[in-house]
């Protein structure tokens, strides 16, 4: 019997995909692993998307270093 899942289809690069899988365990949302660059988020709603975006932002922030932000 064919299984049907409604939600959001995500496309991204492999490192981000691994990170999303990691986040999904922390923030408790269901992700279906399709292949290296694609994921399926079950029951995607606004708050989940916002959470994902927030986590990605935090990740990017952690890996960015800049000189300009300091005022002279």
């Amino acid at each position: 019997m064919v299984h049907v899942f409604k939600g959001l289809f995500l496309e991204c690069d492999p490192p981000t995909k691994q990170f999303l899988l990691f986040v999904s365990k922390q923030e408790h949302f269901e992700l279906i692993d399709i292949d290296e660059t694609h994921l399926f988020l079950q029951g995607g709603n606004e708050s989940t998307i916002a959470t994902i975006q927030r986590c990605i932002d935090e990740l990017q922030n952690r890996n960015t270093y800049s000189v300009f932000d300091q005022d002279k």
């Binding site: 019997m1 064919v2 899942f5 939600g7 959001l8 289809f9 975006q53 990605i56 990017q60």
Partner: peptide, 22 residues
């Protein structure tokens, strides 16, 4: 682009098809 690294689209997923023909 840094912020937009994930592409979202509203979709429906089908798996567990009984046969390859199907």
């Amino acid at each position: 682009a840094e912020r937009n690294c994930v592409d979202y689209s509203k979709a429906v997923l089908y798996n567990s098809f009984p046969t390859l023909d199907c």
